[in-house]
Every structure is written in structure tokens, then in C-alpha cells.
Design a protein around this nucleic acid. Structure first.
Lengths: 331, 331
DNA sequence: CTGAAAGCGCTTACAG
DNA sequence: CTGAAAGCGCTTACAG
């Protein structure tokens, strides 16, 4: 491995000079600079950023912790984030927590140990706030995305879940639906609480009494969405509309409806949440609450980098307004 | 920031002792060990792995470079890889090359500079072999996945593309199809060359002359798959079957067929490649060549870690056999 | 404009 | 069983 020292020896200067050339600091004569640069390429020297970071007590990487890489919503988020980081020459650690707090904690420790300068976290259910605080106290900025385990603990980038589902519910009610179900999400999820809140608030606003049997939780997959829907419709055939907690669940809901010989959008209306790419491509294509995951990723990147660079403004939340995207699945 | 030095001072031992406790090396008396461990938790000390790595000339992170995070195939691959790495306490850098060689090169340099100990690369088209060789000469192991820019340059984990498409083509021919098209992939792609090779070989085997107008390339998205299909069917209405280069393209193919008022699986058969999760969920669900992206991810992880740990066996290829998965989209 | 030297947080042979 | 000291590859204040 060739180091700054080899380069220095090769062109008869000190390592300080080489370092200054490499980092564009101090005044170096053009001849010296050229000598150094030539030696660099002749030797195939690669700058050791990790060593520089150690010396600097600085970092140029951030860690992203997400619960479910297979959900295309997160793929979009990563696309937005990684593009932003790349422009800023910051590297991305990706950690897959799989909704498991213990794993999440382990991964956070590893990331810090590995010198990630900031963390972007979509917290697993029952995330330990104490633990997050202790990370913050170590000076590692955290920004929560999509989900928020506690309001006042860190910056947050996400959408207005309450409003999003309100819009969806309102639309269904205006279409004449009265038996509207809500499928998906895990019981302990704050995000689900907000979404269900929007759903119930709209029902009440229109004088419809929320029926607790119409709200079922399930895991974030097509298969779970489908089986939850079968159970639900077996018990409550009067239901004419279903809001999916996430698109991925809504896809399962649609499949179940079709498997029962019913028509999505005619017999039962479906609306999802997220607007993943497939939503515009399914049959029928899925009406959904659109949240630009890409923008969330970008904004989260912007936010951590600012904090890493010393921005010490008050904790803030960046909330992107949701948009209702009406397609064929709701008639 | 608390260091090994603070811990040492707190329990009146040397930093060497603390280091040994932390890494479970040397003989440390139980009392001393306990003293150290207590101090560690009292001070909230976090081991600086990056510093240890510098000292060791070692690394516990690998970089993954992928061209298209939004394609669910890669999400699956990441799931497999990240699970394996996590078990081995290795961190993952994720780099998104977006099919751009210049960006890919920049990212590779950054990853090395950042002390990634190995690279898993799904090479962008026209990847520079020279550049990859120079990386290898620096002692950074590379394993190529899914695509291979050159046979002899590094380990490779992927599937048998030729065979996979042969199986698909064979199936269609047996169903009686004679006008079979192939949609997708970029012209410079080796992988596409292999897949098209399998397609043509099977046609020839059955005495069907390949028609160059039946092979169209397009970008890896639903929208591009759809528009390529429209153009194709406008010019060649006699076509009764289409093989999609990837599932994501095949979804677009299906959409175009439906938009033309034709029935997928009845009027035109469709087969994809990859078997992403949506394939079993689309309407109709998509017949496809199944390649376990998850397994590829895992195997690639296994392979780089082995190399990082000094395995110097000859370059090898791990080829997973493709499986034809017949569903409704091909009748 | 350039060099000598200390130090980032850790490890490890070498003494004792 | 434990400590003193050199060194991983870089940077930076201080001289000159």
C-alpha cells in the first residue's frame, strides 16, 4: 500500500507538502504541486480518507437504517438520499434492521464505531428513546425519517399521515361509501396511529361511526394484506371500500378482492398510501396517497449533512404534504 | 469523545490493558477485566473500530455498487447480502452507479479511500476492465454479481442467463408459438447478449429463423417496456409471444398488451426474467425465469469475505441455475 | 514556500 | 498478569 510518505520520498519533499497538495491547503509552488501530482499517479497512490478522518475527528459517511429494504418505498427513498450524498461526496452505510430493535441498536453501535458521522433512522417499533438520546449526546446527529418514535428527540423528515388518510377517506365518502375499512400497519406503530386517526376523524366528521372491526392490522407484505382482507370480508361482506396502510398491503387487498371474484373499483374501492412505482402500473392501477419518498430521502440527507457541519438550530421537522392520486382502483 | 485512554485512567491501568479487554486478547485477570468493563459502561465509551482498522491495516466493511436501486431485483439482492454481512459483523456501503461508468469509478475510489475492504460490483455497461484490475492489484478483492464485464478478472456470482432464456423460449415454442419477440436490455450488455443467445439458439433448434425485428432493446423500466412493445406490435401484429429481458420490462410489456385491448396469456404470452416479488402478484401473474437474487447476494457476501480473509484460491464463478416459473401470463 | 514533529484512537511486540 | 512505547496514514500549528 502506497502512502503519503512514499509519494513524499519520491519527489523529495515532506509529507506535509504532499498532504497540502492533496487537500489544496497552504501555498504550494506550481512546480512542487506538479511534482507531487505526477508521483501520485505514477505510484497509483490512493488517499486514505479514513486516516484523515481519524486525525480530523471528522467523518464523511452517514448511516441509513431502514426496516424493510424489499418495500419499494424505501428503494425510492434510498435513490433520493444516495443521489444527494453522492453530490456531496459523502458515502452511505446501509443497515437493514428488519423491524427489530435489538438489531437496530447493534447496527447503530457498529455504525458509530465505524465512524459514521450521522444517522438517518426509520425507527423500528418500540425503539428505545433513551438509546437514541445517548447517541445524540455523543454528538452524532440523527434524523428520523418516515416514522417518528418521539417528537422532540431529533430532526424528522416525513409526511402528514393524518392528513393523507383524511384525504383518502374523504374521497371515498364523497363517492358514497359508508362501510370503509382500514387494513394494515402494526398496532404499536405511531405512523399507523396517525393514519387511523385521519381515517376516524373523517368518518366522524361525516357522521359515520367508526367500527372497530373494520380496522385490522397486518404485516407489510402483499400476502399479509391479502389474507387480512379475506378474513375481513368473510366477516363483513358489507364493506365497499378499503384503505390500505401502505401500497404494498393495498396490492394484497386488491388480489384478495379479485380472488373472491369481486371487481376492484366496482364492487370494492381500494386506496393505498405511498405511491410506489407499481401503483401506477397495477391492474387496476392503484389510487393512493402520494408521498415522494425520493424527496424525503433527499431532505433527510440535507438535514444530516447540515447537522454534521455544525448547524445547531433547534430541532425541526420537515413535513411534505401528501397528495391524493386518484386512479382506477377506487371507481 | 471518550477513548481507551479515558477508560484506562479511570481504572488505573494502561491503555494496553483496556485494549486487550476490549478485544479479548492476552491474559487479563478477572478483577481487572471487570474494572475495565465497568468503566466502559459508566463512561459510555464506544470502541473506535475505524482507528483499530487503521492500525491493523484491516477493514470490516464492504462496498456494494449497483446500477438501479429502484429495480426490486436489487432490493432482494441487498436483503440477502446485508443479512449475511450482519451475521459477520461487517458493515455495508451502498453505492448507486445509475449505469454510469464515470460515476462508478468515482464511487469505487471513494470506497477504497474510505477503507472498504472489498467490493461487490454489478458493473455498468462499458465498465473499464483496466480500472478494475488496478483495484485488484491494490489488494482489494472484487466480486462481480449478476453482470460480468469480463470473465477472467474476478470472482463472479450470477445465474445462467443463456440457459434461463432457453427454458423460457422452449416453453413458448412447445405452446405452439412461432412469432416470439424479445424485448429489453441495452445493446452493449453482456447479459443481454447471453439471454438473446439462449433465445436464438432455441429458435434455431426448432427450425425457426430468428427475426432481427423481433429483438428490441429498451431501458429497464415499465414505461420503456410498454412503449417498446407498442412500437413492436404496431409493426408486427403477428407476434404471439414476448420474452421480457427483465420482469420490470415484462410488466411494461403486459401493460402495453392490455392497453391495446389484447389479453395477456391468451392473445399474447409473456415471460419475464428475475422473479421479483410482484411477479407472483401481477394480473395475470407473470411467468418468469426465477433467479434467487437473495441467494446471489448471500453468495457474493460469502465470497468477498473469504477473499478479505485471505482466501487466495483461483478465481471462481458461482452460477445458480435458473428455474422456469410458469404462471398465468403465458397461457 | 516548505519541513520537523506531535497527535487522532487504537494495537502489539517486548519487557518486567 | 500488566505497562511503556512505537506506529497505522494522515494533518496542522509552528518554525524557518
Amino acid at each position: 500500500m502506497t502512502t503519503i510518505y512514499d509519494v513524499a520520498k519520491r519527489c523529495q519533499v515532506s509529507t506535509a507538502t504532499v498532504s497540502m497538495v492533496l487537500t489544496n491547503k497552504g501555498r504550494i509552488s506550481d512546480k512542487t504541486r506538479k511534482r507531487v501530482l505526477d508521483a501520485v499517479s505514477e505510484l497509483g497512490y490512493i488517499y486514505n480518507q479514513a486516516a484523515a478522518n481519524l486525525r480530523h475527528k471528522r467523518s464523511n459517511s452517514v448511516g441509513l437504517l431502514i426496516p424493510d429494504i424489499v418495500n419499494p418505498f424505501y428503494a425510492e427513498l434510498i435513490a433520493g438520499l444516495s443521489g444527494y450524498l453522492e453530490e456531496n461526496e459523502v458515502l452511505l452505510f446501509l443497515a437493514h434492521t428488519e423491524e427489530n430493535v435489538a438489531k437496530q441498536n447493534r447496527l447503530i453501535e457498529s455504525l458509530i464505531s465505524q465512524n459514521a458521522g450521522g444517522l438517518i433512522l426509520c425507527p423500528a417499533p418500540d425503539t428505545d428513546k433513551q438509546f437514541l438520546s445517548s447517541v445524540k449526546h455523543r454528538g452524532i446527529p440523527i434524523v428520523q425519517v418516515v416514522r417518528q418514535c418521539d417528537d422532540a428527540i431529533s430532526d424528522y423528515v416525513g409526511t402528514n399521515n393524518f392528513l393523507g388518510v383524511q384525504m383518502a377517506t374523504e374521497h371515498l365518502i364523497r363517492q358514497g361509501h359508508r362501510h370503509i375499512a382500514f387494513v394494515g400497519g402494526s398496532l404499536s406503530s405511531q405512523t399507523r396511529a396517525h393514519r387511523i386517526g385521519g381515517y376516524m376523524a373523517k368518518l366522524l366528521e361525516h357522521g359515520i361511526a367508526p367500527n372497530e372491526h373494520y380496522m385490522v392490522s397486518c404485516k407489510a407484505s402483499r400476502a399479509d394484506g391479502a389474507s387480512a382482507t379475506h378474513t375481513l370480508l368473510d366477516a363483513h361482506p358489507e364493506i365497499t371500500a378499503i384503505i390500505g396502510y401502505q401500497d404494498i398491503v393495498a396490492f394484497g387487498v386488491m388480489r384478495a378482492i379479485k380472488d373472491r371474484g369481486l371487481r376492484v373499483g366496482k364492487d370494492i374501492a381500494v386506496i393505498g398510501f405511498d405511491d410506489v412505482p407499481e401503483a401506477s402500473d397495477s391492474s387496476p392501477n392503484l389510487s393512493t396517497v402520494s408521498v415522494s419518498a425520493r424527496k424525503i430521502g433527499e431532505a433527510a440527507g440535507e438535514c444530516v449533512l447540515a447537522r454534521m457541519r455544525g448547524d445547531s438550530a433547534n430541532i425541526k421537522s420537515v413535513i411534505f404534504p401528501p397528495q391524493l392520486c386518484i386512479r382506477r382502483s377506487c371507481g
